[in-house]
């Protein structure tokens, strides 16, 4: 039984355990057919959660106070500008994507400059700046829903053997990110800064450069997510990023990454994303009303943190 006790100690195990039990309940209630369908939907929606959560995870790993609250605004702005530029023309797909990337790079740089020069906590810096990004999106969007080029929409929902292509792409990206985190100088620097910023500085790590790259990366992931989400959901809408703020933080933490920083886990991100989606689906399957659904969702998030909380301790 040693493997069980070893497994229980892995930080990502709770998220996956939760995801699997949710799926078992759904399948138990509505049969295998529904179980297969919900799994496919979970893969689709979970993929978007994972994309933003990867960036948020690197940010949170930098240590206490590091959270990027500008993710929803960044997603909205990137999707709005890119969709508007392409205006449904498939020929403009590549420049559209580049615009989206550009938005991410610009927002990441702005966030970092605010943190660096104003010396304010990243939470406040990204929060205040996100108001500006959101306003820019509102101003350029004017409440319209600009349709994405058909190719983009098709790609975002395309499936191979029941598995969305986007999911496969993001899986590969996740593996790449795991390599980046555990095997490269940048990744190890992020972990070191999160564990002890002073020690990291004394060891010769250029802390501000690491922070810059991390916030840049987070914004780029958010903008790319916004780009594909707009394709997936038939256009950019002003509230499209709304739930991704809570979701990105919840997924990171439930996935076993330490909120205190210094310890990150990519395997858990997938488990937690699937768990969050399946949890909501399960509550729908059980036919609960909106109010109870919210209560149970919140209670389960808190319960997961309490149960798995000992390792998160500051």
């Amino acid at each position: 039984m040693t493997w069980v006790s070893q497994l229980v100690q892995k930080p990502w195990v709770w998220a996956w355990f939760g995801a699997v039990s949710m799926w078992v309940i759904i399948t138990g209630v509505s049969g295998f057919g529904a179980g297969g369908q919900v799994m496919s939907a979970a893969a689709s929606f979970g993929t978007f959660f994972v994309i933003v959560a990867i960036g948020q995870m690197f940010v949170i790993t930098l240590g206490p106070g590091n959270v990027d609250l500008s993710i929803p605004a960044c997603m909205t702005l990137s999707a709005t500008l890119a969709m508007k530029f392409m205006n449904g023309d498939p020929g403009l797909l590549v420049p559209g994507f580049l615009i989206s990337l550009g938005v991410g790079l610009a927002i990441g740089t702005t966030n970092f400059l605010l943190i660096l020069f104003l010396r304010i906590p990243p939470i406040i810096a990204t929060l205040s700046a996100s108001f500006l990004y959101q306003s820019t999106a509102i101003w350029s969007n004017r409440g319209l829903r600009v349709k994405p080029p058909e190719v983009l929409g098709d790609f975002a929902v395309a499936k191979v053997a029941g598995v969305p292509i986007l999911t496969l792409v993001v899986l590969v990206v996740t593996v790449g990110m795991a390599f980046l985190l555990h095997r490269t100088r940048f990744g190890l620097s992020v972990l070191a800064v999160g564990q002890n910023e002073k020690a990291a500085k004394l060891a010769g790590i250029r802390v501000e450069r690491v922070r810059f790259l991390t916030y840049l990366m987070c914004a780029v992931f958010a903008s790319v997510c916004g780009f594909f989400l707009a394709g997936f959901s038939g256009g950019a809408a002003l509230n499209m990023g709304e739930q991704y703020l809570l979701m990105s933080i919840a997924v990171v933490v439930i996935g076993g990454t330490s909120v205190a920083g210094g310890y990150a886990n990519l395997t858990g991100l997938w488990g937690a994303s699937l768990f969050m989606f399946l949890l909501v689906s399960m509550l729908n399957t059980l036919g609960l009303s909106a109010g109870y659904r919210l209560i149970v969702t919140g209670a389960i998030i808190v319960a997961v943190i309490v149960v798995s909380g000992r390792k998160l301790a500051r």
């Binding site: 933080i249 209670a299 943190i305 500051r314």
Partner: peptide
């Protein structure tokens, strides 16, 4: 339990909204 307040309150925000909706 030495928990991160950000995450606990994030979860609780669902609970409060849920009760309010009820």
């Amino acid at each position: 339990r030495n928990l991160p307040s950000i995450v606990v309150t994030l979860g609780m925000s669902f609970v409060w909204t849920g009760i309010a909706v009820l």
